[in-house]
Design a protein around this nucleic acid. Structure first.
Lengths: 257, 257
DNA sequence: TGAATTGTTTGGTAATTCCGAACCAACTAA
DNA sequence: TTAGTTGGTTCGGAATTACCAAACAATTCA
């Protein structure tokens, strides 16, 4: 039989495999012995899995070290490029970054989480915690809250249930009702802030990219809170963001091809 | 038992799974019915595999369409960023692109193929066939031939055996001996050309990034053959490339951390 | 030289994948 | 409304195989 009960029967071997892949990534490559220590499988079992992965070019070997291969980059870039928002968003982010000097982000939702789809660095941009392809909870990001704000209420409840509202800084919203109140405000304003809710000293302002009945994603500009003041956000950044999202929404509505 | 005979026993279910993933990519998302047509498995079999992939967040559903998720981007960017050459190469490519106005590429070898690790677009750059994460044969690229030139002879034979020398244009080298002669020349010159060997009308010039006893990868500048003449390559681009690879080799030898 | 460590191979069985076929749910056409 | 179609979902059970244990090979270190 399979893992799990009742509906949605799963394939146990596949669970095993994906567990191996995830572990291989979190260890940043590992020898067979290290993997054996980390996972609850016999050495020989892991060995045949690794051989299969290598044969299919999903893993490369450096001596006795097994590492994930660039096959993942191939698939990943393919997925990224098949997203229309990603394609039209790239140049828009570059403009935003150039005009503000800060970091501009493009975020979409997947499986109830925020995924950093793209970024552009301005002149004064500082290296941040996040990177393209990375994931984060939705509730502590300007873009994440925007996405939640335009998602159906049931879906929001589901996401809160599933992922919780963990506290990252003293400013993170951890109460569901407080979050829902903020989402209401965001819907009224059409923009959202991240006021040191993710990292202390980091502020961001974002705007959503909306379609008819859907939210495609959101973009934001982030930077040090003392440089990116609330006034500067509202006066300088907000108009730029709204111009950008407006352009994106038009391009998504009337794709060039 | 398992797939394959003798040594390196493989896990058949894993082969199946990776086959599904590859198919899902080449179809750019598919319904269960479409996958059933494409692959030799029962509908119910594919269904449980897809359910497992979705449960592990490697696949997303849009209605009845199954698509690869951005999880692949996460792993892919992680692999890319754990490569030191990729990290130091990015800014160098940007400079090259800015100085030449053309497209600058960073290529590494994996499983006997060329992988486009990064690119930077100059002012006059035209959209090309290739994209980051993509793969190509080594024998028809300037960077690919460079990598072959500095790989052990046995390895070169192995790669020729395994992947062949398919013809992409009338200029592609398809004869093993001719290729080996060119590799010898490349070792003498320290640079390599791609003279319409990949796409008609496209020229590129590249230089290798060498370590002690190894070749890390290669970088190149490519553009329309009529603009990127052989003279311009030798006089303008070649010094820039050598300066760039020199910088990269130093940075790889003495990493900042 | 022997002990320790790590990757590789293999036999056999307990476990699971896989198929077939039935079951739904949503549309379409008559 | 009803019959027909298309596509996703579920489930029992036989055939296949993933998995473990244990032996083996190849290095490395004492």
């Amino acid at each position: 039989m399979t893992t799990g009960d009742g509906p949605n029967r799963r394939v146990k071997t596949t669970d095993t495999l994906l567990e191996i892949i995830d572990t291989l990534q979190s260890l940043d490559g590992a020898t067979l012995a290290e993997l054996t220590d980390e996972l609850e499988y016999a050495k020989s079992t892991l060995h045949s899995h690794l051989s299969t992965l290598e044969h299919n070019e999903y893993v490369v070997r450096n001596g006795d070290e097994y590492e994930l291969s660039l096959k993942f980059l191939e698939h990943g870039m393919f997925v990224k490029n098949s997203d229309e928002l990603s394609r039209v968003g790239g140049p828009v982010l570059e403009d935003l970054a150039a005009e503000t000097g800060e970091v501009a982000w493009l975020i979409v939702e997947e499986h109830g989480k925020a995924v950093y789809l793209d970024k552009a660095m301005g002149e004064k941009a500082v290296q941040t915690h996040a990177s393209v392809g990375g994931r984060a909870r939705l509730h502590h990001l300007a873009t994440g809250k925007l996405i939640l704000a335009y998602l159906p209420d049931e879906r929001v409840d589901e996401i809160i249930d599933c992922h919780g509202l963990p506290e990252l800084t003293p400013h993170t919203i951890t109460d569901p009702d407080e979050l829902r109140a903020e989402l209401e405000e965001i819907r009224e304003d059409g923009i959202a802030f991240n006021d040191k809710e993710t990292v202390d000293g980091l502020r961001a302002i974002g705007a959503p990219v909306l379609g008819e009945e859907t939210v495609y994603g959101a973009i934001s500009v982030s930077g040090p809170a003392n440089r990116l003041t609330v006034e500067r956000c509202l006066e300088e950044i907000k108009p730029l963001l709204l111009e950008a999202t407006n352009e994106l929404e038009l391009k998504l509505q009337y794709p060039p091809n």
